[in-house]
Simulated scan of single mutants.
Amino acid sequence: MARPIWSGTLTFGLLNIPVSLMAGERKTDISFRMLDSRNNRPIRYERVNSETGEEVAWKDIVKAFEYDKGSYVVLEPGDIKSAAPESHDAIEVEAFVDVDQIGPQYFEKPYVLVPAKKAEKGYVLLREALERTGKIGIARVVIRTREHLCAVMPQGDALMLMMMRYPQELVDVGEYRLPEGESRDYRITDKELAFSEQLIQTMAGEWAPDEYRDEFRERLQDVIGRRMKEHGVVSAADQEPEVHDHAATNVVDFMELLQQSIQKNQRTPAKKVPADAPAEKPKKAAKKAAKGAAKKAPAKKAATKGTAAKKAAGKAAKKTAARKKAA
């Protein structure tokens, strides 16, 4: 069984549903390695200095941003970490929108959300609510160090998570030279348009994805199969995601959480506490730490005195034995 890419909680309102993020696509591309024809050994790519031609060790490599041609600013590891988001264990739904509002160019890569044990109720609740309302959830998820925009949408029995592109990643179609205007501006007759529509109707049918196959890959795979030997497959042990105490398992009062979420969104946001306002908890913690230190200090002193007394007694015993020997 496949291993989860990410494990955490799917959050909307006050409901937290423990889920695992599983791959929703399977790579079928056939990749090739370049070999030396003289002995069929792989060609290795080396990290070399563009000026000296010498190989560079990993420990001597730093990351830099090229802000101009040939001009770089070197970044420390801490610089990149400081820009990374803090939350890594939650898919936080920020809004629900109509699925028709989002163009296909925004969707990038599919994943499947799989509920943890005893979290099926919350999973089905969200799936059915999205199905009935015709909405999808717009959320953010952090995988490794990058924050991704994503959409949570129902698909049969599953909740799918679709990775999305940010608007800044899309090219404005207005940058290209495209035919604008109506069909009559291009001397398209009503008869031509009618025949085109008729052709489309004759070719119309139901979507049957199983009918479409990568035939080139299959033929190439047959060729490779005749030239290779079979190898064993090692499968890794499956991991169950950790379920938190606050997670929305099947025994949680969903009505109470849903009502609290609705009231929270309807209430006016509370005023933010100024950054320079005095905090009570740190003071209490400091007092507690001071008391603890005071209690430990006498014990430490006593222990030190006892050690010193033992050392003095040992020295006196050695001197007495030396005198007796001399006498």
Results as ranks from 00 to 15, higher is better:
33 R>A: 09
13 G>N: 11
302 A>N: 05
266 Q>N: 13
263 Q>V: 00
246 H>K: 11
52 T>L: 02
14 L>Q: 07
279 A>C: 09
6 W>P: 08
64 A>I: 01
144 R>P: 13
30 I>S: 01
307 T>Q: 14
50 S>R: 06
194 A>E: 04
294 A>D: 04
26 R>W: 06
34 M>H: 11
6 W>K: 03
30 I>R: 06
97 V>E: 11
201 Q>H: 10
94 E>L: 10
107 F>A: 04
110 P>E: 00
119 A>H: 04
282 P>M: 02
274 P>K: 07
221 Q>R: 03
81 K>F: 10
299 A>F: 14
5 I>K: 14
139 A>I: 02
10 L>W: 00
50 S>D: 13
205 G>P: 03
175 E>H: 11
195 F>L: 08
234 V>K: 05
57 A>I: 01
64 A>F: 07
39 N>G: 09
104 P>F: 06
111 Y>H: 08
126 L>R: 07
305 K>A: 14
201 Q>R: 09
10 L>H: 02
134 G>H: 07
161 L>R: 01
307 T>W: 13
313 A>N: 10
267 R>A: 13
66 E>F: 00
236 A>H: 14
58 W>V: 09
252 V>W: 00
162 M>Y: 14
2 A>V: 15
213 R>T: 04
131 E>S: 11
184 R>K: 09
73 V>W: 01
261 S>V: 06
236 A>W: 07
214 D>A: 02
204 A>S: 07
238 D>F: 10
205 G>R: 02
153 M>I: 13
180 E>Y: 13
37 S>R: 09
19 V>F: 10
82 S>Q: 09
280 E>C: 07
18 P>S: 04
276 D>N: 14
169 E>I: 08
242 E>D: 12
291 K>E: 07
133 T>Q: 13
39 N>S: 07
33 R>D: 12
202 T>Q: 15
70 G>Y: 10
95 A>P: 06
94 E>V: 11
319 K>H: 02
163 M>K: 08
225 G>P: 10
275 A>P: 01
241 P>D: 00
116 A>F: 02
244 H>T: 08
13 G>S: 03
149 L>G: 03
238 D>N: 12
249 T>N: 01
224 I>V: 07
105 Q>H: 11
14 L>S: 03
86 E>C: 11
22 M>A: 01
227 R>V: 12
97 V>A: 15
219 R>G: 10
8 G>E: 00
172 D>T: 08
47 R>D: 13
58 W>M: 13
320 T>H: 09
320 T>R: 10
44 R>P: 03
246 H>D: 13
167 P>F: 02
41 R>E: 12
286 A>F: 10
132 R>Y: 13
129 A>I: 06
147 E>Q: 14
88 H>V: 14
51 E>K: 05
138 I>M: 08
166 Y>D: 09
119 A>R: 02
50 S>I: 05
81 K>G: 14
257 L>D: 00
46 E>A: 14
114 V>W: 01
215 E>Q: 11
154 P>K: 01
25 E>Y: 07
211 E>Y: 08
325 K>H: 11
237 A>W: 11
239 Q>P: 14
118 K>C: 15
135 K>A: 11
193 L>N: 00
208 A>P: 04
73 V>N: 05
6 W>G: 00
5 I>Y: 08
127 R>W: 03
111 Y>K: 04
262 I>H: 01
114 V>P: 00
123 Y>T: 03
112 V>I: 06
321 A>K: 15
76 E>L: 01
246 H>E: 15
